[in-house]
Design a binder for these strands. Structure first.
Length: 558
RNA sequence: GUCCGGUUCGUCUAGGGGUCUAGGACACCGCCCUUUCACGGCGGCAACACGGGUUCAAAUCCCGUACCGGAUACCA
């Protein structure tokens, strides 16, 4: 029988890290085995379920690219079937009506209240002491017919135990006396979770239930229901939990945004990178590799590789550099700087567009970049799997062209952690309207007051020495195709790294200062930040015109 | 309280009786490169929860203790 797994979130909030990981593992298992990955929304708790949550969960799954098979099942649509199952068990004497008046839930912490009550009862509690458990069928029917409200509870046998082999945790046993006669149907007729799950899993022909370890005890109750229903239970695989730093519960309430999937999307994470780091939380292929493509994850995933101990999602709220798990941040950076450039470009485009930094000129030859990359024309744009476009920069790349854009992204991505960095740290490459980092100004500018006159002077020097005119093709070295002529036809120097270095070094010597002083001062004026690629590349990439303008600008000095 | 589960560097983890003076990654700290740097290179710090067994041999198997987590609802 082919594998059928499901991800069954309850729509009571956004998709959080734990659920996302559960969804991922289910997805990977399905794809690995060639089975189906189904999605079921467990919305039986009408009071807490919202459409907004459902949308948000679907959105999160879509972002992670965990595509499900078949139609989404809404558990509430099956309520009639659940009720029917409860009635059947009642008729067969495997369940009974409990006429105990419903206890009103007190306000405050429900979890705490339950724990308190359980503690008070201790081991003394007899799970079979419900007075209605052995009520005669006649009396039960009579009272029901008279309109007395009742819940339907499963009649758990007096002696014996539930046993199942968990694919992760191994053999699990639980004595019946530890399990109460659980409620199947509420007195208002609404089916309860354990009944609904079992019925739906049967109906959806689920073969493997992969879910959080917090369901381990529910599983025993569910097995009881399977047995009562006369159906063989599926295979269960429980996942260790993802905890907060300090081993506490990772909660929306306490930890806020770090647990929400949308946070990562909005923070400029690549889904592939986040998915990759999620996969490593509670699972390992037993090797030292850590960067896995989705394809590799699918190939290597196995239930045997799942751990039994909880993992901590490590972050510290007060450190902006560690606002979320460090390894996740690192992995995102790793993806950004090592993934094929043509895979990264669409994401950068989206980011730039969102910040009004995108220019149509960045489109390759006027065509939509995405369509070029996705279509068969890819070979034309990127011959033989090359990351870079075919157009070679025989001259200085003209600022604002597609060629320049690709080169720039490639240049600046090395030090970036998220997609957001392209529009923040990297803003000065794409716009005249960028901010200056106060720390950079202090460190590289105001510390050397001479720079206030030197840098505009450098601009004048550049203006005298350089020309934006490209070198002529004739000047190319036939062997390397690199421009050999350092001068343009007007007799000025080509504005490229080698020449810039010569000019800046000479200028530095004249001023009797260190190269770093000039370079870092220029970096601050040109890019607004203190870190980045080699300054020679920066000069060239920003282009002569903008370099002159920015070196002369007074903005940073005021 | 009771039941269930877990415990290897700060964090994610490798490890399934000898190859473990415990490996990798992130973070951190040094050094190198360099005009700076959150790129890169090299290096360092740092862990088998504790106590008993079993065995020639235990991080690995067994038992206990401690700690942590989960569950204990007419929530899911």
């Amino acid at each position: 029988m082919s594998v059928r797994v499901r991800f069954a979130p309850s729509p009571t909030g956004y998709l959080h890290i734990g659920s996302a990981r559960t969804a991922l593992f289910n997805y990977l298992y399905a794809r690995h085995t060639g089975g189906k990955f189904l999605l079921r929304i467990e919305d039986t708790d009408l009071a807490r379920s919202t459409d907004e949550s459902t949308r948000s969960i679907l959105e999160g799954l879509a972002w992670l690219e965990l595509e499900h098979d078949e139609d989404v099942v809404f558990q509430s649509d099956n309520a009639d079937k659940h009720r029917e199952a409860a009635r059947r068990l009642l008729a067969e004497g495997k369940a009974y009506r409990d006429f105990t008046p419903k206890e009103e839930a007190g306000d405050g912490n429900i979890k705490e209240a339950i724990k308190e009550r359980a503690r008070a009862q201790g081991s003394e509690k007899n799970m079979r002491d419900n007075p209605f458990r052995d009520l005669s069928a006649e009396e039960s029917d009579e009272r029901a017919a008279s309109g007395e409200p009742f819940a339907i509870r499963l009649k758990v046998p007096e002696v014996g135990k539930t046993v199942f082999e968990d694919a992760v945790y191994g053999l699990q046993e639980r004595d019946y006396k530890e399990t109460e006669d659980l409620v199947l149907l509420r007195s208002d007729g609404h089916p309860l979770y354990n009944l609904a799950v079992v019925c739906d899993d049967i109906e959806m022909q689920i073969t493997h239930v992969i879910r959080g370890q917090d369901h381990l005890t529910n599983t025993h109750k569910q097995i009881l229901i399977y047995e009562a229903l006369g159906v063989t239970p599926p295979i269960f695989a429980h996942l260790p939990l993802i905890m907060a730093p300090g081993k506490g519960k990772l909660s929306k309430r306490k930890h806020g945004e770090v647990v929400s999937m949308t946070t990562y999307r909005d923070a400029g994470f690549l889904a592939a990178a986040f998915r990759n780091s999620l996969a490593l939380l509670g699972w390992s292929a037993g090797e030292e590799q850590e960067i896995y493509s989705l394809k590799e994850l699918v190939e290597k995933f196995s239930l045997e590789g799942i751990h039994r101990s909880n993992a901590i999602f490590n972050f510290s709220e007060n450190d902006p550099r560690k606002w979320t798990d460090n390894k996740a941040i690192w992995m995102n950076a790793e993806y950004i700087r090592t993934m094929p450039l043509h895979d990264l470009l669409p994401f950068v485009k989206t980011e730039l567009k969102a910040n009004k930094l995108w220019r149509e000129e960045y489109e390759p030859e006027g065509r939509a970049l995405a369509s070029v990359i996705d279509s068969t024309e890819v070979s034309e744009a990127f011959p033989e799997g090359e990351d870079r476009p075919v157009a070679r920069a025989v001259d200085v790349r003209k600022v604002g062209t597609y060629d320049w854009y690709v080169h720039t992204v490639d240049l600046i991505r090395a030090r970036f952690f998220t997609l957001k960095d392209f529009s923040t740290q990297g803003r000065a490459y794409f716009s005249e309207d960028f901010d200056f980092d106060p720390a950079a100004i202090t460190k590289n500018l105001t510390k050397f007051p001479d720079l206030e006159t030197w840098l505009p002077e450098l601009a004048t020097r550049f203006e005298a020495e350089f020309d934006d005119e490209p070198a002529h093709l004739n000047d190319l070295d036939p062997g390397t195709e690199e421009p050999v002529a350092l001068r343009t036809h007007s007799g000025k120097l080509v504005y490229n790294e080698a020449n810039i270095e010569t000019v800046v070094k000479a200028f530095t010597e004249e001023k009797g200062t260190k190269l770093g002083v000039i370079m870092n001062g220029a970096r601050t004026l040109l890019t607004g930040v203190a870190v980045g690629p080699s300054m020679l590349s920066v000069f060239e990439t920003i282009g002569l015109e903008r370099t002159l303008m920015r070196l002369r600008s007074r903005v940073a000095w005021n």
